[in-house]
Design a protein around this nucleic acid. Structure first.
Lengths: 155, 155
DNA sequence: TATTGTTATACTCTATAACTATA
DNA sequence: TATAGTTATAGAGTATAACAATA
């Protein structure tokens, strides 16, 4: 007896969870050779894209709580991929920048992640992928909208 | 400065994670009034769909490790939603069944989850949703295929 | 010997409160 | 008084090893 989950397969959320679990597991294996985790890869990419971004802005973009982001940056700094530089105009803040090594590792890891992403979506055209990305963004926004509705009605 | 994540938005995996986070957060709020978590709801639904299923088969279907599933069933049993009954043909095993209260709570929770799922996919037609579910399943299978490839090449 | 359910445990992820130094 | 970064900590969620009862 193997059991069936047809009654849950009708939900988008269930498919989302199972698809994400599969992707997460493969992505973790993809990033291991670079000594990166999903979260350190994302943060590395975001610093690369937003040179000089501050930790609190980065926390905002990633939805990572500030205290947890501190540890992520510590990890990237220890690996000599990222630098914390005191902001000249606000001595409480740090501006985050990639080191040359950080740029190099990011480029290589990004190529590996791109290959992984294409394998996960094997059998789909570029148009399919773009449509999927748009739908996922729409779901994310619907979720945020619901969250705001719940939050406001509690105030 | 708010920061941009365009360089990650090109990945399906990134969209998947962000969409799932939003859905998870709303689903958790949806299930709270029933004193259910995502995992207890899923397990409740699967027992409802597979009357008499055994814990090890349920662990297989859900990809939940056996030791962790024990605690989930404990929680559902304490809430009087599920019964462990000794299997007549194998006295090591338990057959899992819903109580009448379990069936009742499942029906109500399932209706709430269906409403939540539709809100998360607001703006999509039924055909859109079905197509999305099919794509997500495809990704899940691609992931499993990659996992098997990696696992076999290590043996 | 192998399997079912269980216990104990550890590791990761995430969330919150409170501190410091600056503003 | 508020904000940036930090520390400490606690709670989920998840994973593994080892055990008792049974096959």
């Amino acid at each position: 007896m193997t059991g069936s989950d047809a009654s849950l397969r009708i939900f988008v959320g269930y498919g989302l969870k199972r698809a994400f679990n599969a992707v997460q597991s493969d992505l973790t294996a993809t990033l291991a050779p670079f000594r990166l985790r999903m979260v350190t890869f994302s943060v590395l990419a975001l610093i690369g894209e937003n040179d000089g971004i501050r930790q609190s802005d980065l926390a905002e973009v990633t939805s990572i709580e500030r205290p947890n982001l501190v540890l992520v940056i510590d990890e990237l700094e220890r690996a000599k991929l990222v630098l914390r530089m005191r902001a000249p105009d606000d001595r409480r803040a740090y501006e985050l920048r990639l080191t040359p090594k950080g740029r190099e590792v990011l480029a290589e890891a990004r190529a590996a992640v791109a290959a992984h992403d294409h394998q996960m979506t094997a059998g789909m055209t570029k148009a399919d992928r773009d449509a999927l990305i748009a739908v996922l963004r729409k779901i994310e926004l619907n979720g945020r909208k619901e969250h705001d509705r719940r939050t406001l009605s509690r105030s």
